[in-house]
């Protein structure tokens, strides 16, 4: 039995200790916003926050985050009002959309650590998130925009 607090709600999961957090979130908790893309931390589609820090859920055994607080895309904000989500909407970032939960979670982690990121900061923090549709240019612009929105 593993206890996790997901998006503010503490739950018990009867799953094997070494089951990746990703599949606990998706197939057991039913939170499908966090995506499976590669299974080896190559694509970033599974990015969540654990105790506020970004984590690739596909390579993290659930037992390693037992008792911790997990935030998924569904819990980033109650109403898509997080500055990153607002910027994503404003700049029409998405295409197929499959990678975007991970992109948004990574961007949110970056802005938390670095409220006014440079292009180099964006390269360093977001190069772990693949987008096969090639939305990188708008992602970059939207991260800058989110930084402005966050300052109000």
């Amino acid at each position: 039995m593993v206890s996790l607090t997901i998006n503010g709600k503490t739950q018990q999961f009867d799953v094997p200790d070494d089951m990746p957090l990703l599949w606990v979130l998706r197939d057991v908790a039913g939170l499908t916003g966090t995506k499976f893309g590669c299974g080896m931390a190559q694509c970033g589609a599974c990015t969540v926050h654990v105790d506020g820090a970004p984590l690739r859920a596909c390579v993290m055994p659930v037992a390693a985050v037992a008792g911790k607080s997990v935030t998924t895309i569904e819990g980033l904000s109650p109403d898509a009002s997080h500055p990153v989500q607002r910027a994503w909407a404003e700049l029409d970032v998405v295409q197929c959309g499959y990678c975007q939960s991970g992109q948004i979670m990574s961007a949110a982690a970056l802005l938390k650590a670095k409220p006014t990121p440079t292009d180099a900061d964006i390269d360093a923090a977001l190069s772990g998130n693949l987008c096969r549709c090639g939305t990188y240019q708008r992602i970059r612009a939207a991260v800058h925009r989110a930084a402005e929105l966050a300052k109000g």
Binding site: T32, I73, G97
Partner: peptide, 14 residues
């Protein structure tokens, strides 16, 4: 399709 793709609601086959 932007709103549902930025908050995790969009349903893909997966």
């Amino acid at each position: 399709d932007s709103p549902e793709k930025i908050d995790g609601r969009a349903k893909f086959g997966m």
